[in-house]
Amino acid sequence: MSAKPRVRVPSTAKKGEVFEIKTVISHSMESGQRKAADGSPIPRKIIDKFVCTYNGKEVMTSQWYGAVSANPYLEFFCTATESGTLEFTWHDEGGETYTATADIKVT
C-alpha cells in the first residue's frame, strides 16, 4: 500500500519551547527472510535512513537496520527556534525516498 506518510507537528510554538513530532509511514519493511509463493526469496527492502530538516538545517537523522516493524512509527523532540517548515525524508534500500512536510509558527 502506498499511503502518504503521516506527521504531526504543533501548528504554533513559543520560541525556545521543546515540541513533540510524531511520524508514521506506510512501508512493508520487507525483511529478506520471506519467500514468495514459488519459493524464491523476496529481497530485503527496508527504510535505512530517516532525516528531518528544519528550514533546511538537519536537526535529526536516524539509521535503521533489520527488525524494524512494517509501517514504522517514530517520535522525537525538537526545539522551536524560528517559524518555518520541517521536512521529513525516509530513504529505503531500493533508492526510493518518501517525503512529508509540516509548517510551524514560532511566536
Partner: peptide
C-alpha cells in the same frame, strides 16, 4: 497518530 491503521 501511533495507530498505523490511520494510513489506510
Amino acid at each position: 497518530m501511533m495507530n498505523p491503521s490511520f494510513l489506510w
